[in-house]
C-alpha cells in the first residue's frame, strides 16, 4: 500500500527510502506551528494533510517530494 512520509528533514526521508515525502514544519511540531493562532495552525495542518492525500493518490515511479 502507498505510504506518505511526513517529515521535516527531506534528505533523511530520502536516505531511508521513502517514496512519497511531504516536508513538514519543524521537528518538534511537524504538523503545526505553535507561533500561529489556533485556527491558522489547523489550516496549515489541513494543507499538509491535503498534500499527503494528493501524494497517496498520485502514481510515482521514484522518490518524490510533494
Amino acid at each position: 500500500m502507498p505510504v506518505a512520509h511526513m517529515a521535516s528533514i527531506v534528505p533523511i526521508s530520502k536516505s531511508v527510502g521513502a517514496n512519497r515525502i511531504i516536508p513538514t514544519v519543524a521537528i518538534p511540531h511537524p504538523l503545526g506551528n505553535p507561533a500561529l493562532p489556533r485556527e491558522e495552525e489547523v489550516a496549515v495542518r489541513r494543507q499538509l494533510v491535503e498534500k499527503a492525500l494528493m501524494a497517496l493518490s498520485a502514481d510515482v515511479s521514484d522518490q518524490t517530494v510533494f
Partner: peptide
Amino acid sequence: REGATRLLADEWSLR
C-alpha cells in the same frame, strides 16, 4: 512556502 512557514533544520548539522 504557500503560506506555511517552515523552520528548515540544517540536515548536516543535525546528522
